[in-house]
Amino acid sequence: MRYEGVLTKMQTEAGSPIQYYLVFNDNFIHMNQLLGQEIELSFRGFECLNCAKKKKIWRMGFCYDCFYSIPGAGDWIMRPELSTAHLGIADRDLDYETRVQVQPHVVYLACSSDMKVGVTRKTQVPTRWIDQGASFAIPLVEVPNRYLAGITEVALKNHYSDKINWKKMLCNEVTEFDLIAMRNIAKDLLPDDVSQYFETTVEQLYKMEYPVLEYPKKIKSLNLATTPNYSGRLVGIKGQYLIFEDGTVLNVRSYEGFVMELNV
């Protein structure tokens, strides 16, 4: 069976295991059903996720011009402490930024490889943790806007990493921590403006189970720019990665805006 479309990050559905879907304009693929099967991937071109022009993708699925102009690619996306919409100050588009920034955000602790701290909108729980390949996660504080979440993350980065060792994550080399105990320790590290939100945040430990038949011992990342055609047996999906039997992995999120053909 042949599918073709523009890659966007896989849609997920919480479950045991998590369910994954590749969604194109006119169809979708339930990726869990492809586990154990040989699939062929072919790179066919580019299509910007914003303007839909056939222009080379720069970052985040956008062409160069869109990346540096649209509000959804502002610096505050990666650095939430730069958010200013709660003050009525625009970066690129105040209406858009107010909708996204001025809503409940969660600062969390998670284990994908080692323990990390991160930020997500409340509406993205647990999707954000699934996308990062976290095995366990726990909310630390829920705050009313992105700025407060950002300054909390900055304060905690002095004590915890905000990065994921993606190779360890994909090999399932996960260091387990008592996240409930670590949450209580982190309470004393919160900024003064945020500490009031600790007691009102529900202490709930999340556990994620991924559809993986076998984890690789060593991995090699598939680069579609240099290897536009690849075929292999799909043995797992974790985070936003497809894992193949020969140890090749494809980070779907890294290739948003790439037009792909998939044959099963």
Results as ranks from 00 to 15, higher is better:
S135V: 12
K116G: 03
R92M: 02
R79A: 15
K168F: 06
S69M: 02
H105Q: 10
I89T: 13
E209R: 03
Q37A: 13
T12D: 04
E153S: 02
D131S: 08
L224R: 08
H159G: 01
H86V: 13
I151L: 12
V174C: 01
E173M: 11
L82A: 08
D93N: 14
Y255R: 07
V264S: 09
V235F: 04
G257V: 04
V259A: 05
R44F: 02
A225D: 09
T248A: 02
K217H: 11
M31L: 15
T127A: 05
F258P: 05
D93Y: 03
S83V: 10
G257N: 05
D114P: 00
Q103C: 13
H159W: 08
N27P: 00
I89G: 08
T227V: 14
V6F: 06
C51G: 03
V264H: 03
W129Y: 09
Q124R: 13
N263I: 13
T248W: 07
I89W: 05
T227A: 11
W166A: 05
F62S: 11
Y160N: 03
V235I: 13
L22R: 01
C171Q: 15
E176Q: 09
D91F: 02
V23I: 09
V141L: 13
N229R: 12
K207P: 00
L224I: 12
I185S: 03
T84I: 09
L34V: 03
P139K: 12
N27H: 09
L49N: 15
K238W: 04
E153H: 01
A52Q: 14
E97A: 05
K207W: 00
V106Y: 05
Q132I: 11
I29C: 00
Q101K: 05
R146T: 11
